[in-house]
Design a protein around this nucleic acid. Sequence first.
DNA 1: ACAAAAACTTAGTCGTTCCTAACTATAGGT
DNA 2: ACCTATAGTTAGGAACGACTAAGTTTTTGT
Lengths: 236, 236
Amino acid sequence: MNALVREPRSQSIEDYLKVTYQIQEQSQWVTTSALAERLGHAPSSITNMVQKLQKLGYLDYTPYYGFRLTDKGKRLALGMLRHHRLLELFLVKVLGYTWDRVHEEAERLEHVVSGEFVERIDRLLGHPRLDPHGDPIPTEEGRLQETTHPRLLECFAGESVMVRRVSDASGEFLRYAAELGLVPDARIEVVECAPFEGPIRIRVQGKDHYIGRDAARRIFVERKNAKSSKPKRPLP
Amino acid sequence: MNALVREPRSQSIEDYLKVTYQIQEQSQWVTTSALAERLGHAPSSITNMVQKLQKLGYLDYTPYYGFRLTDKGKRLALGMLRHHRLLELFLVKVLGYTWDRVHEEAERLEHVVSGEFVERIDRLLGHPRLDPHGDPIPTEEGRLQETTHPRLLECFAGESVMVRRVSDASGEFLRYAAELGLVPDARIEVVECAPFEGPIRIRVQGKDHYIGRDAARRIFVERKNAKSSKPKRPLP
DNA sequence: ACAAAAACTTAGTCGTTCCTAACTATAGGT
DNA sequence: ACCTATAGTTAGGAACGACTAAGTTTTTGT
Ligand SMILES: [Mn+2]
Ligand SMILES: [Mn+2]
Ligand SMILES: [Mn+2]
Ligand SMILES: [Mn+2]
């Protein structure tokens, strides 16, 4: 009996598991269409691959319902996130990339760099905890510092907050955010929030900007010691 | 008529063209079996792919005879060599790899790094001309400084030579060579050559070693008539 | 010169990963 | 409750790049 069946681990499999992990961080069950959307594939392709990944023990799958990673699947997904985020930081800090250009490069590199490569850039970077967008980097053992910062959208007028994370889903948005100085560790004052789903007025480095709600949804912040204790209009 | 047919350029295609280039540097016509040997594939796989590459205009092929790269094929092959060799040097100089471990990593990375990545490491490394094994790095425009150094095997007793290039085909050999100090820019005195295909006695950094003919075939040297000043190279 | 060996090509197949089209199950609205 | 819109699955197929087995061409040895 040959128990040593070769375990395939293609680039496709790695991306499926990585993105599944990212989706299930928010919604308990991952759906076919959610993964199809994020990977840019037809839903039927997802069904096929998910069935294969279940056979390989990477996830638990209930037809017509959804799926979730097993521990084995999570371990692999966290490995990919570690590769991806360390690579992004490496590209910024060592090669001088801007933070809006690193995602595509890391998306390809993450699948081919060896463990040795990753550990070497980890050491070179001084064992960093966050990537250029403020996303936490899993440890080599697969531990991830969970972050649950509120969105800038959820803040009240008068609050003084600090940028902790910026969604890296769109390079265009990252360029816009950088222009406004909305980068991790930047201090923001929420000056006012227009009613009726209106824009938000913020002050960054002494300059005022009006940003839309979509933008404010992509910025995650940490509340500082509030200097105004009078919450005004909450933003739902 | 849509003349803008997408030009496929898979990892496989890139490796076929790169290795074809390396083979045709020495033998005018590249044969199916030579490429099969180097790529570790069955000969029939080579025939298939070569026919495809001819249709794509990357090489000229005469059945049962052999093939050669077209200018288009050469351009692509030189690009891959540039990627590969710059990556190898980068791994040694920036990430601290030893010169016997870089080939496998570069073999995978060469296909996924962007042009921007390559130009950034090129700048970081100061536009180097040689990789860690002494192989020349093609320029961005695809120009390659041809090197035709004689092999150590071809030297006579009494000659004083300088190592210029060490075959990177085997990691094991590279470890052995480094142990003996046989790295680019090392000075060697050929003390004696045993007759009847015997070993060669060399002196490196004051120490004598007997090396076999297979080893001496893998070392390329420059004959030193006088003291010439060449750019220095770091030890891997 | 000719038969055997070696080199090469052709034919047919397989695994991987994607697709479209057709089918099926679940969820909402009335 | 039922009927339909939506989400999900199955079926069938294409492109790619490898393989083995079988056939063809070229080279080699006597
Ligand atoms: Mn990826
Ligand atoms: Mn990121
Ligand atoms: Mn390669
Ligand atoms: Mn090399």
